[in-house]
Simulated scan of single mutants.
Amino acid sequence: MIQSMTGYGKSVLQLPSKKISIEIKSLNSKNLDLNTRMPSVYREKELSIRKLIASQLERGKIDFSLYMEITGEETSSQINKTVVKEYIKQLKDVVDGDETELLKMAVRLPDAVTTERDEIDEDEWASIAAAINESIEKIQKYRKDEGKALETDFEDRVQNIGKLLEAVIEMDPERIEGVRARLEKGIADIKEKVDENRFEQELVYYIEKFDITEEKVRLQNHLDYFLKALKSPDSNGKKLGFIGQEMGREINTIGSKSNYAPMQKLVVQMKDELEKIKEQLLNVL
């Protein structure tokens, strides 16, 4: 089953003294392009988070964000009382002023407030890791749902190309007969006697140059292979892209060999359907 590279997953975790919000966004990209944003206290876990996301989401432009909001009384910042008192004492030697105003000035000076680096609580991190996995599951579900819509669109467009190919096959004898008639008319207009055997040989050679039997067979095989690849257990957008390229090659050859306006119109319609397939393939994982 194919998956889209577009997706979104969010989880919110309420801890005793903080609220953790986790968001994962994904867009299409040729390779894995992963950006992470999180508070410094959790930075030591960044490598393991990256490995987890890379193993689960595989490819795409992915933004991972972990937000922390303190909801309790917990704080890592402390006033350095000794330093603040010394600042106030020095300020009094410089200027007379209200104690409150001097305090406002003192706490803005260097080292007046110290910040202790929190250590990660492993039980707390276990809850956060579970929330991260929940976000990943949500974005995977989003991708699969988008993939179902893409699969339906691909099937419709491949079937449209198949119907146009059937019309080409039905039209081909008429096209060949038209080529033969134009050649015979051209010879008749010259009003010269020609060797009938030689003319027939040249006619066969000329018609063979415009024969599209192999292209019709190969294109049908590529259409069948594309539909089969859509149903594979793994999503492989690159493989589908390669099959799409082969489909385009056969369609282009049919167009260049057709030399017949009604058939070329069908080829243009096939190209239009294929271009829409290629555009959507950019979103497939």
Rank of each mutant, 00 (worst) to 15 (best):
60 G>H: 04
218 R>W: 01
197 N>E: 15
61 K>A: 06
209 K>F: 02
233 P>W: 06
163 K>Q: 13
167 A>Q: 14
108 R>L: 15
83 V>N: 13
115 T>A: 06
153 D>H: 11
17 S>I: 08
49 I>G: 06
161 I>K: 00
264 Q>V: 10
58 E>G: 01
194 V>T: 13
55 S>M: 09
81 K>H: 11
245 Q>G: 03
217 V>S: 12
73 E>W: 04
261 A>D: 02
264 Q>K: 12
48 S>W: 08
270 M>R: 05
46 E>T: 07
44 E>G: 11
74 E>G: 07
128 I>A: 01
277 I>E: 01
95 V>Y: 14
230 L>P: 00
217 V>Q: 07
102 L>A: 03
50 R>G: 01
161 I>Y: 01
195 D>S: 14
26 S>G: 12
227 L>Y: 00
94 V>D: 06
191 K>D: 15
19 K>Y: 04
112 A>T: 07
52 L>N: 13
115 T>V: 14
57 L>S: 04
93 D>G: 15
83 V>P: 07
71 T>H: 09
174 E>I: 11
132 I>H: 05
20 I>E: 05
82 T>P: 00
25 K>L: 10
118 D>Y: 04
82 T>F: 07
37 R>K: 13
173 P>Q: 05
39 P>N: 07
241 G>I: 02
82 T>D: 14
158 V>M: 08
52 L>E: 14
86 E>Y: 09
232 S>R: 08
195 D>C: 12
17 S>M: 07
100 T>G: 12
167 A>I: 03
251 I>C: 06
135 S>I: 10
38 M>K: 05
22 I>V: 14
249 R>M: 00
160 N>W: 01
230 L>N: 02
203 L>N: 03
214 E>R: 05
281 L>R: 12
251 I>L: 06
185 K>R: 12
180 R>K: 14
30 K>E: 12
114 T>W: 02
51 K>I: 11
143 R>V: 00
139 I>K: 11
87 Y>I: 03
234 D>H: 02
107 V>M: 04
14 Q>E: 15
220 Q>F: 02
146 E>M: 07
24 I>E: 08
232 S>C: 00
12 V>E: 12
36 T>K: 01
105 M>G: 05
206 Y>Q: 09
102 L>I: 13
76 S>W: 04
149 A>G: 06
267 V>E: 08
282 L>V: 12
227 L>E: 01
3 Q>T: 13
262 P>V: 04
255 G>E: 00
90 Q>C: 08
210 F>H: 12
210 F>V: 09
285 L>H: 03
13 L>Q: 03
246 E>H: 05
258 S>F: 02
284 V>K: 08
126 A>H: 13
196 E>T: 15
243 I>P: 00
234 D>V: 05
9 G>Q: 04
82 T>R: 08
247 M>T: 02
275 E>V: 04
188 A>P: 04
278 K>E: 00
10 K>E: 11
127 S>T: 03
48 S>H: 11
168 V>A: 03
10 K>P: 00
209 K>N: 09
220 Q>N: 13
93 D>L: 15
38 M>G: 01
90 Q>L: 15
82 T>S: 14
181 A>Q: 10
9 G>S: 02
122 E>C: 06
12 V>A: 10
232 S>V: 01
10 K>L: 01
155 E>S: 10
173 P>C: 02
84 V>E: 10
84 V>F: 09
7 G>P: 04
240 L>Y: 01
227 L>I: 05
29 S>F: 04
191 K>Y: 05
